[in-house]
Design a protein around this nucleic acid. Structure first.
Lengths: 132, 132
DNA sequence: ATAACTGCAAACGGTTTGCAAGTCT
DNA sequence: AGACTTGCAAACCGTTTGCAGTTAT
């Protein structure tokens, strides 16, 4: 599968970045940068917070993580390269991915609004199976 | 039409809050709190920035404004109570509303994910008519 | 060898908060 | 009158940045 969670081309592979990568890879829900930093430190205790910020930005630029619309502090979720959307549980904070999608078609957006869509973001908020 | 842009019940109607309300009402696209503050000051020059923050939070709690997924600083858009989504122009920053929506059905989410949706958020990014 | 990367700590900037004064009901 | 609201300015806190030392290539 092309495009699995990885660093952008041309950047160096360091233990710090790999630690952040592992922490993202094992994440099951949404996380803040600080939380990610804490978890990544289990792999690389000397990891600095600034480096975590810098790495998150790297991953965001390649689509490896994705910012969520948050009430409070900015949160992220791991983001697989396939097209998908997020099911955000408002009870436990967990995030599932789903490939279900039915966004308005490009032709309809063109016809109705003269708008040419490039990307879209669908987050569904509700209650997950466990919290039901 | 019930639920036009308004303050929550029980809070006092002050010139400051009305000024912020007017600034939101006349907004045509996305805005940051600081921008909103500048515009609201045209109606109430003595308006403090902290009050603008407090009022935006009030409006957010009632759905009168809606935070957008931003790269940079947090931005908001005015949000009418009817169901709708946003067409965000990545060129000029303008935001249109659209009633076009085709989110996954509740039954399909239940069946496939055991997820009970309460709300969803669809923002479409692309190029608007004028910027095309 | 050398350009990229990191940790540290300071700087930054947006947001929140405490409080005394003012205002709506 | 009394509770709510405001402006101000300080405090707060998440994020960014400069820089000297370190590391991947």
């Amino acid at each position: 599968m092309a495009g699995e969670l990885a660093l952008p081309d041309g950047v160096r592979s360091t233990t710090q970045r790999l630690a952040v990568l592992r922490a993202v890879a094992e994440s099951t829900g949404s996380f803040t940068v600080a939380e990610l930093h804490d978890r990544a430190r289990r792999f690389e205790p000397r990891l600095g917070l600034a480096t975590t910020y810098r790495t998150v930005e790297l991953l965001r630029s390649t689509g490896g993580v994705h910012p969520l619309l948050g009430e409070g502090r900015p949160t992220y979720v791991r983001c697989r390269p396939e097209h998908h959307h997020h099911l955000v549980c408002t009870s436990c904070g967990g995030v599932e991915e789903t490939e279900l999608c039915a966004a308005p078609s490009e032709s309809e957006l063109q016809r109705r609004h003269g708008f040419r869509p490039a990307a879209h973001e669908l987050d569904i908020y509700g209650t997950c199976r466990r919290c039901a």
